[in-house]
Simulated assay, not measured.
Amino acid sequence: MHAPARKLFPMLSALDFERALAFYAEQLGGRESYRFPPEGQPAFELGIGRIDGSPALHGQALRPASGHRVELCVYVDDVDATVARLAEAGAPVLLAPRDMPWGERVAYVADPDGNLVMLTRENVS
């Protein structure tokens, strides 16, 4: 039997680290839960790593040639208001808010590095 993972979270790459932090903290309300290194930039349960031109340790390109590999799901209180605020701040809206047959209201935006972010709220009937 394998031991369970102690912690699991996604890591995104960011060309403009400060802009990515502002998007997830200021625009989506993410809160800092730890820093590594302790004197370094904050990280969230969503890890954001700086792209600085250095080769990645794993040897793979940090950007896929096309398409996307990751889609983040963020539950919010008001999908429409969140999309409006993000659009006003310059985030591309990829799918306007709409009700889905499974009972959620969803919309898609892109973060500053083009990562897909699904904003959702369970519909209250």
Rank of each mutant, 00 (worst) to 15 (best):
L46W: 09
R63S: 11
V76K: 04
L46M: 13
E39K: 02
G53L: 05
S66E: 15
G49V: 04
A61N: 15
A65D: 04
D77V: 11
F44V: 15
A81F: 10
E39F: 02
A43C: 13
V79W: 05
Y34W: 02
V79P: 12
P64F: 04
P38M: 01
E45G: 15
F44K: 14
E45S: 13
P55A: 06
G67P: 07
A81C: 10
A56K: 06
P55Y: 00
E39T: 05
G67V: 05
I48D: 02
L62W: 02
P38Q: 03
Q41H: 10
E45F: 08
H68Q: 12
Y34M: 01
R63L: 09
P42E: 08
I48Y: 03
R50P: 01
L57Y: 15
E39N: 08
A56D: 03
R50A: 00
R35V: 09
H58W: 03
L46K: 13
D80Y: 00
P38N: 02
F36H: 10
G40C: 01
G47S: 12
H68K: 07
E45C: 07
G53N: 11
S66A: 15
A61Q: 15
Y75L: 00
R69A: 08
S54F: 10
L72R: 06
V74R: 09
P64S: 07
I51G: 06
P37Y: 03
E45M: 09
I48T: 04
V70F: 03
V76G: 07
G67S: 11
L46F: 08
Q60H: 12
R63N: 08
R69H: 09
L62R: 04
L72S: 10
A43G: 14
Q41R: 09
G53M: 09
E45N: 14
R63G: 02
P55G: 04
L57N: 13
S54Q: 14
G49K: 08
G59K: 05
L46S: 11
Q41V: 09
R35S: 07
P37W: 04
Y75V: 03
G49A: 12
P64G: 05
P42I: 03
H68E: 11
H68F: 12
V74P: 00
G59C: 06
G53I: 07
F36N: 09
E39R: 04
R50K: 08
E39C: 03
G49H: 15
Q60Y: 10
R63V: 10
Y34S: 00
L62K: 01
G40H: 02
V76F: 12
P42T: 06
P38L: 02
E45R: 12
R69M: 07
A56C: 02
G49M: 11
H58C: 09
Y34Q: 00
P38D: 06
L62Y: 01
Q41Y: 06
P37C: 03
L57W: 15
L57T: 13
I51A: 14
G67R: 13
E39S: 10
E71K: 11
P37S: 06
P64W: 02
Q41W: 09
D77Q: 15
V70T: 14
E71I: 14
V76C: 07
R69V: 08
D77C: 09
P55W: 00
R69Y: 06
S66F: 13
D52P: 07
P55L: 01
D78V: 06
V79G: 11
Y34K: 00
S54P: 04
E45Y: 10
V74D: 08
R50V: 00
